[in-house]
Write a protein that binds this DNA or RNA. Structure first.
Lengths: 146, 146
DNA sequence: AGATAATAGTTCGCATGCGAAATATTTTGC
DNA sequence: GCAAAATATTTCGCATGCGAACTATTATCT
């Protein structure tokens, strides 16, 4: 596989990633949310009282990035952010009343957004997952080796 | 495929994309470049006198994003940006002497960076490409349908 | 217990990334 | 040939995204 092919894979990943992101952005905007706020809303619904670092882990983002996203949601009144009782370094995140209500309103939008994606055959999903893991492994190995 | 699986695919794409990006960032930083400057350097080498919109097309980015990237490269003295003779709306982009020299210096780094990636079997590359196209198609269809 | 190390979040500086609006130029319609 | 539409790029506002530096708190080591 030559340099050209590698660059093409790199760009094809960015294309798919951005297409995904734009699809979610469009869906989220119906509720005056951003794509990541849409995702965070779901995580907070599933994991009440989650810590910021655990949320970051869930959404596969760095701490500082997640902190910013949460901060904007707190300012918008969607999330309550309080110091954790048992560890006063940490923050406990919970959906506010407004956030929980908004989550319920987004359900139809979520299903509608996913409609087309459901068409990807199970077989392809498995293959995609398998190769993704392989690629991730190679990339991480390469990164470690410097 | 449920909502959960879709979100997982979305995140796995972001993970691979970011791993790629970080690998390139690390390689590029050896020459005091960013990942995208690294890519643009190569495109400008291959397509001298390219227009900004054609460069944007090549790297799969929007015009405004590409404009910013090029602007920083012009300020760094790597790229010459001039009004196109035949169409004074457009800009013609070329590597400067400094940019061309830097490009030559990056060759070893490029090859080194790609080393691990070359291990992905041809079979997997083809499968990956096939499924990527399918996913992209589904995403675009979904986007158009609103 | 007190110094030291580790951990959790936030803030900062920088670079993407987009769409919308603005500017300059060219093309089209009549 | 001139008004209107189309096109190329830049600028703007906003939201990611990262790592490094900073603050506050907790854990560890002796």
């Amino acid at each position: 596989m030559g340099e050209q092919q590698i660059l093409e894979i790199f760009q094809s990943y960015r294309e798919v990633h951005q297409a995904f992101f734009q699809l979610m952005t469009k869906a989220a905007s119906k509720h005056k949310l951003t794509a990541l706020q849409f995702v965070v809303l779901k995580v907070l619904k599933e994991y009440p009282e989650i810590r910021l670092s655990d949320l970051a882990e869930q959404v596969k983002l760095g701490n500082s990035t997640t902190s910013g996203i949460v901060d904007r949601m707190v300012k918008a009144g969607l999330v309550d952010r309080e110091r954790t009782e048992t560890d006063r370094r940490a923050m406990t995140l919970t959906l506010s009343e407004k956030g929980a209500a908004l989550w319920r309103e987004t359900e139809a939008t979520r299903l509608h957004m996913m409609r087309s994606l459901l068409e990807l055959p199970e077989e392809d999903q498995r293959e995609l997952h398998r190769i993704q893991q392989k690629v991730l492994h190679l990339l991480r190995k390469s990164r470690e080796e410097g």
